[in-house]
Computed example of a mutant assay.
Amino acid sequence: MKKNKKMVLAASALAIGLSAQPASAGWFDWLFGKSTDTYTATKHPIVLVHGLSGFNKLFGIVEYFNGVPDALTESGAEVFVPQVSAANSTEVRGEQLLAQIEEYMAVTGAEKVHLIGHSHGGPTIRYVAGVRPDLIASVSSVGGVNWGTPVADAFNTGALDNLGNWFFGLLDTFSGGGGLPQDTGAAIASLSTEGSLQFNERFSAGIPSTYCGNDGAEVVDGVRYYSWGGNKISTNFWDVSDPLLKALEPLFDEPTDGLVPACSMKLGKVLGVDYGHNHLDQVNMLFGLVGRNAADPVELYRQQANRLKNLGL
């Protein structure tokens, strides 16, 4: 098994600190020192990119992609979890991510990487693939805001900017972001319907020809595009995020995960946007509390890694 290394790379040109996500070894590795499980052993490393209000690890303990890095690493993948601004425009976040990917590739010798982005991480990784397709093997958008969301439309007034910048600055501080710039207004504008459509005009790879269409190109400039997500708000009685997302339901007139319309998630080859997940379930938060009959969120990441592995990527 390739052991995922914990590393802190030198500050990039954008003064962004980079720390690779540590993944603990499984019991087999603890006993015998290696694993025979290669289910997720992709040729290229996998990069997991967080969305709005996201982080790498909060307080050094709470993972944004809860349990996903270890699950991928334990069956052969090399995994990297960068941190970009919790709130900023897609372009700013994309440049931050690109700088970290270039640093990471320089250190490891990797030729390309696979990008998996959740929520605002979807457009963020699309930006990187658009400006540097030579570095990217695949783009997988999970609950991605690819056509905008009514939530951003409703709050695109500037009223929350100061409070948001303070809050997202705290997240950055407590997750070791190193003082990344926060711009709530720019983030909301990027995630709005208008902002998303403008972004799609410049970065159209994988985007369906019509809203909710299924004809997004699977391969563009040598990069493979995929998407998946959920269409349910209330998923588990014990999940405290459910009532918070439920409060936003009046903003929608179509299936949604509570923050993003299912149709907005579609990009490239659509693996499914009808999983019984809400927006946080898609990254296995909170505490892995998903619906009884819902797909295991972590297993969906493993399946995607295996899909890429079987393509020789």
Results as ranks from 00 to 15, higher is better:
residue 126 R to Q: 07
residue 14 L to N: 02
residue 131 V to L: 06
residue 26 G to E: 10
residue 131 V to P: 03
residue 228 W to E: 02
residue 201 E to C: 09
residue 118 H to V: 09
residue 142 V to G: 00
residue 291 G to I: 04
residue 269 K to H: 12
residue 75 S to E: 11
residue 248 L to F: 14
residue 39 Y to N: 11
residue 190 S to Q: 01
residue 127 Y to D: 01
residue 89 S to E: 00
residue 239 D to W: 12
residue 12 S to I: 02
residue 21 Q to W: 03
residue 91 E to Q: 08
residue 130 G to F: 12
residue 7 M to R: 03
residue 138 S to Y: 02
residue 145 V to P: 15
residue 257 D to H: 14
residue 286 L to T: 11
residue 291 G to A: 06
residue 106 A to T: 06
residue 190 S to P: 02
residue 10 A to G: 15
residue 45 P to M: 09
residue 239 D to N: 15
residue 226 Y to M: 09
residue 239 D to K: 02
residue 197 L to K: 11
residue 255 P to F: 04
residue 29 D to H: 14
residue 19 S to V: 15
residue 54 G to N: 03
residue 192 S to K: 13
residue 159 A to E: 13
residue 253 D to F: 08
residue 45 P to V: 08
residue 62 V to D: 14
residue 271 L to F: 05
residue 160 L to P: 11
residue 309 K to G: 09
residue 248 L to Q: 13
residue 162 N to P: 09
residue 109 G to L: 10
residue 53 S to Y: 07
residue 104 Y to D: 02
residue 1 M to E: 06
residue 300 L to Y: 01
residue 140 S to C: 14
residue 172 D to N: 10
residue 84 V to G: 04
residue 281 D to M: 03
residue 78 E to H: 04
residue 188 I to Y: 05
residue 36 T to G: 13
residue 114 H to K: 06
residue 175 S to Y: 02
residue 66 N to V: 15
residue 1 M to N: 07
residue 191 L to W: 01
residue 267 L to F: 05
residue 67 G to E: 02
residue 263 C to S: 07
residue 17 G to Q: 13
